[in-house]
Every structure is written in C-alpha cells, then in structure tokens.
Simulated scan of single mutants.
Amino acid sequence: MMKHAAFATALSLLTGALASAQTPAETFESGLAEYRRSHHIPSLSVVVLRDGEPDVEAYLGWSDDEGELPTTADTTYFIASVTKTVSGTTLFLADEAGEIDLDRPMADAEDWQGLCDWFPDSGIPLAGGEVEGVIMPDFSCAGQTLRQVVNMQANGEPGTDFWYNALVFARLGRWVDEVHERDFRSLVRAYVLDPLAMTDTMAGWHDIQNFHVLSHLAPPFFFDGERVVKQPFPDDDFRGAAGLYMTPMDLARFDRALDDGTLLTPGQRDALWTPPNNPDGSPSEYAHGWFLEDYQGERLIFHSGWQPEAYSAIYLKVPDRGLTLIAFANSESLWWHNRPDRSEIERSDLVQAFFAAYGIGETTP
C-alpha cells in the first residue's frame, strides 16, 4: 500500500508542478522535496544531464543520523547494482583491447567450480525459484562463458534467455582476480575510473584511493512503517555486481565519456548496447551490464541499484534526447520490486515523474 500511495503522491505533485513550471527542469525539480518526504528518504541526490550538462542538480535532506549535515554535491552513496554499468563497460573495453576474452569459459576459475558445488542446491531463488512472482529457471554449471554471465544469460540453457542474476554476475570480479594478471579493481581503475579522473569514487572498502569518499558517505536508513532506522553499512568489498561508492556528478563524468567519444568510438558504443538475441530471435533486454528497453517509441538504457533496507539508485539514459537521470538515495525507496525477466524502468514513480516533465514517451524526440 505504501508504494501505491507514494506513486499517487508523486503523480499528483507532478500534475501541480506541470501547471506552474516553465521548463522541464523546473517541473521535475519542483516536486523532488515532497517526493523525498513522502518516500521517507533521509538523503536524496538527483541530477539530470542534457547533452552532458546539468539541467537539474538537487541535493535534498541530510546525510547523518542527527539531521545536522545537509546533503550536498559532495555527499556519496553506495550505488549497489548501478556498479554493473561500470563493470560491464570495463570488461567490454578490456575485450576490445585484447586483454580479456569474453568468450573464455567461466570454468577456468576454481572459484566458479566452488559456486557450482553449492549454488544449484542452495535453496536461493536465483538458482531456480520464485523471485518477485516470477519462476526463474534452474542454474546449473553447463559451460557458461564470461560473455553469457555479463549478459545475464546464465540461468536455464546458457546463452539463451535473459534472467537477471546478481549473485552470478558478482562472480565476475572473483573470476578476473583469479585468472587475470590484474585484479578486477585494478582493471576498472585502468579502463574507467582513472582515465576519467573519477576522484569522488571508491571501488570498495579496501580501495587505497580516494578515502575522502567514505568521510562524505550518507549512512543507510530503512523506513519500518513508522520511522527511519539507521542500518549497518554494507560490508562487501568491490566485486562485479556492486561495491562502488560515489557522488552523482562522478557518475555524470562516466556518462559524458560514454557519449563524447572519450571511452568508446561510436561503433564500440553501439556494440556495447547491442544485446544478444533470445531463442525466438527477439533482442534480449540486457547487454554488458546494462538494461535495454524500448518504451513508447523511446530507446532507454539504464540500471537500477538496490541494497536491501539500505541504499537505492537509478541511472537512466534516453540517448535520442541527450538526457540522463541519476538518482541516489540512502534508503531502498527508489527500488520498485524489479522483476528478474523484464526491463521495466517505467514502473519507478520517480522515472514516471521524469518522463512526464520531459515529455518522454509522449512526443517525437
């Protein structure tokens, strides 16, 4: 009920904003303070980029448990699975450079064999079971390649259908650590973080660079139905699926580099976001760490992040319009109970507010 009420609240706020604001940025930004309040988010940072430049920068709330430290542009967050966009892009670039072979078998790593021994019979739904009302096919070690794992095609018959499996994707980091000369953190730094001067990003607790990121970290909270309760910090180190801590504007540096040719040629960028085919010949909804979706005539490229009862994040690109939405929260309230078999970012009420403000899905770009 809370999510439905929040959705209605967001849309009603947006309707009022549409009547008064003169620009899409003003329309969208005017409802964010009430959105944060109604969703019980202590610290919320939202950035909208238009052609690489900030159209909206909103830093709302407070980033400590006493409510004394206001959220600012320096506030950092654990971005959970949005990390996959950086991880997947890194592996794509390393494959293009000949340093990593995406078609190499996962079984080349002993860690993968260890996963094979316990995961299929673990009882974890991602190994085969119900996730958000959907029955995932069984996971079995059947010759998966690095490419199939990074494209989320590891469940069922490997290399066929898309099934979102964050636990298996997380094994990519361990695979690189074991079989490659450079560990995964070093690879990500070499291909993405250091070339882009992403100095407000840490790759996990054990990263030896950019310690100041933790001093600006908004601690996690959970709304228990009555109040927001401070939660333990995530204690996992950096891995393929999650582990980056950063500011929204550092992710904006990554976003600009994707679009302006700094990281990839136009042909490489097209290949990065070209998914494999499903068995019926239709394109998959995931490629190289990115969700892909066609929504009412609009091309959407995105990822969400969810650390249960702690953090959530949204990173959405609408490339034909030159628009990007970045939203970080120190609660799980940006999460919308994503299904494991579909790319449906329109189910997010914040994204719906963004769409309405900017006319996405309503008019021709």
Score class of each variant (00 low, 15 high):
T15W: 10
F28R: 04
L32K: 05
A33M: 05
S45E: 00
S45Y: 07
V47S: 03
E53H: 13
W62L: 15
W62Y: 06
L69Y: 01
T72K: 05
Y77R: 09
A80Y: 00
L91E: 02
E99H: 14
R104I: 11
R104P: 09
R104N: 09
P105K: 08
A107L: 15
E110M: 11
P120D: 02
G123P: 06
A127F: 04
V134R: 04
R147E: 02
M152T: 07
N155W: 04
A166S: 15
E181Y: 12
E181G: 15
F184K: 01
L187G: 03
L187T: 09
A190Y: 04
V192T: 03
D194K: 10
A197W: 13
G204D: 03
L214M: 12
E226I: 13
E226R: 11
P232K: 10
D237T: 07
D237E: 05
P248S: 08
D255M: 14
G261F: 05
R269G: 03
W273E: 02
P276R: 11
N278R: 15
D280P: 05
Y286S: 05
A287P: 08
I301P: 00
Q307E: 15
E309K: 13
Y311A: 05
Y311K: 08
V318F: 00
T324I: 11
T324D: 06
H337R: 15
N338F: 11
P340I: 13
V351F: 04
V351R: 02
A353K: 03
F354P: 00
F355Y: 02
A357G: 06
T364Q: 09
